[in-house]
Design a protein around this nucleic acid. Structure first.
Lengths: 341, 341
DNA sequence: AGGAGACCCGCAATCGATTGCACTGTTACC
DNA sequence: GGTAACAGTGCAATCGATTGCGGGTCTCCT
């Protein structure tokens, strides 16, 4: 492995001091140098295929041009587009991203945060925060952090999320228009902002419409998984409250709910309507076609990256504490009018 | 942002020299120190919440404990499990991964390779190589590289792939057993090893069975996309060669083929059987259930990481040039007996 | 008692880039 | 003509951790 060329090499080749080379090669540093020298050095650097050593420069300046990206689990379909959105903004701006999976494990999150700090990341984008995440709050005190998709409740950490409230409200109204009055809700985990916010939105929307929203119509999942979706839907149906529609806090829960209906021999949307949230990739291909709230997955990632860069490069400027991106309803086959008994 | 504690801080606190602290804190370095000093230093480090600065240590030792992971596109369902497998091995071993998306763009690949080098990665796992990738070959001369899922043909770069030949052969046999003799093949891109290898395997298997495999039964896709799958399947059907089954080089092509059939009003498997390759997540939920070759997605990632670590830490030891992981057939609804005219 | 090791630990150079300060030569101005 | 201002470069310290080398102390043996 031949060692790569350094400033010193270029200095030797061009007969100037390394500091001069350094200045010639930084965009604005060449200001105090003669055009001729800058030109000569740039040419030599090009010829010698010079690549700056980011470690060295990072050590000196304590800016590594690296950001940490924390994800619960990259194999969860929701996150790749977000990650892609993040990279889509960071990479062209010279940042590299270190990707880590937390598995929603608090100890693991702690450990990975240390890993990122050791590596001197300039900032962190966290798609894995819990709603009540004290350690992330502390962490954010020493390093720019932006949360994406989720947020820490009552926190100053900037977040980029989707319009959870609006999405749920629109969906409830859509179901109501189809005649549904007894709508069940499979809520997301209580320790995730999406879980609590969507649940609150559900209850508000139901009350606003003058419909019942007793606690018995809501079942809270422990995780955003198909298995939990099935379990919760089952529970809801067991309670036998005459539910005609189930609004799930996300698509995976909804897929589980569909499975539960199938297991009971119930048809969707014939017997019961089901809706999801996120519109994850491939959802459109799965029968009966889940009606869901479409979020701008790529854009929330990209926006989070933009905000993080602002935080990192212009700490004095203020950034919005919460950025909410719009959502829309995609209607597919999983909802229909209330079954007439 | 308060600066973190350094070796110097600990040295000052414990009254020893920084070099002593350094030795006390490296696992085997403490060998030449007294137990008492080591203990005292370790305790102080713990108390002061010391985190080594990886930049500094990387600069000094030129080992950054970082690896680059190149993926064509993380939003492609195939790759997240592979990435997860990679991380599953690297992270517990102290490595962090920088993830980059190449979009199968050669110029972009080149640029990202430079990015990784600047950051001093100890090695690279590449899931995005083209079959004839000269620049990656050169790159691998100066830095440990392992390719995963794909490989560079006729190269010395170690690769971890699935049993493409076996998978295709088994699938052809399976179709043959159902009576299919005129089997079409939607081949993968000619510049990817999976494309050429599976195509070759298809032709070999067909010949072995004594079936026809004229060039007209094979259409080569330009990309692994649903759109290309549909286009190629259409082309195949237009040729009107009496094809009764279409073996696709991967699942996305197969999904496209299904779409093409649907557009023509043909049923699957009633009129035509279709098969895929990879068994990507969610495939099981999409009707009619694609029969496909299941690969060990997580394991090829993990194995690639294991091999890379060997390469990085024990350059003298030899590693297998190609590691082939087994595959199996998952049979779902998309294949059936030949339609009797 | 003197010498040989063994054992512990400090010294200082080093990795590569950055940057405040100092220094030299030139220009301009009175 | 002398000096002040300035442009253009070099010098050297610095970021934090690592490591070869050397020096001091203690033990043990002859």
């Amino acid at each position: 492995m031949k060692k790569s060329t350094t400033l010193k090499d270029i200095a030797r080749a061009t007969g100037v001091h390394v500091s001069t080379v350094s200045r010639a090669l930084t965009p604005n540093g060449g200001a105090s140098l003669s055009q001729e020298v800058v030109e000569r050095i740039r040419k030599a650097a090009e010829a010698m295929d010079y690549r700056p050593n980011r470690l060295a420069s990072g050590l000196r300046t304590s800016r590594t041009m690296t950001v940490g990206v924390m994800i619960p689990d990259i194999t969860n379909n929701l996150f790749p587009p977000i990650v892609r959105g993040i990279e889509g903004f960071l990479e062209p701006n010279g940042y590299a991203s270190i990707l880590v999976n937390t598995d929603n494990d608090i100890a693991r999150e702690q450990r990975l945060m240390d890993v990122l700090r050791e590596r001197g990341v300039d900032g962190v984008i966290n798609a894995a925060v819990r709603a009540d995440d004290g350690q992330m709050e502390r962490f954010a005190a020493g390093l720019p952090v932006v949360t994406v998709n989720r947020k820490v409740e009552n926190s100053t950490i900037p977040s980029v999320i989707s319009d959870d409230v609006g999405g749920v409200r629109m969906m409830v109204h859509r179901l109501a228009k189809l005649g549904h009055r007894r709508i069940g809700h499979v809520a997301g985990p209580a320790d995730l902002s999406t879980g609590v916010d969507r649940r609150a939105a559900f209850e508000t929307a139901m009350r606003t419409l003058g419909h019942d929203a007793p606690a018995r119509l809501v079942v809270t999942a422990s995780y955003y998984t198909e298995a939990e979706g099935a379990r919760c839907a089952d529970l809801l149906l067991d309670r036998d409250e005459g539910v005609t529609a189930i609004l799930c806090a996300n698509d995976r829960l909804a897929l589980g709910a569909l499975e539960a209906l199938r297991a009971r021999g119930l048809s969707c949307p014939g017997d019961i309507s089901v809706t999801g949230f996120n519109d994850i990739p491939f959802l459109d291909l799965i029968p009966p076609g889940l009606t869901t709230v479409q979020i701008l997955q790529y854009d929330i990632g990209r926006t989070a990256a933009e905000i993080l860069v602002k935080l990192m490069t212009m700490p004095e400027r203020r950034v919005p504490s919460t950025t909410i991106l719009p959502v829309s309803i995609v209607e597919r086959g999983s909802i229909g009018p209330v079954k007439q008994p």
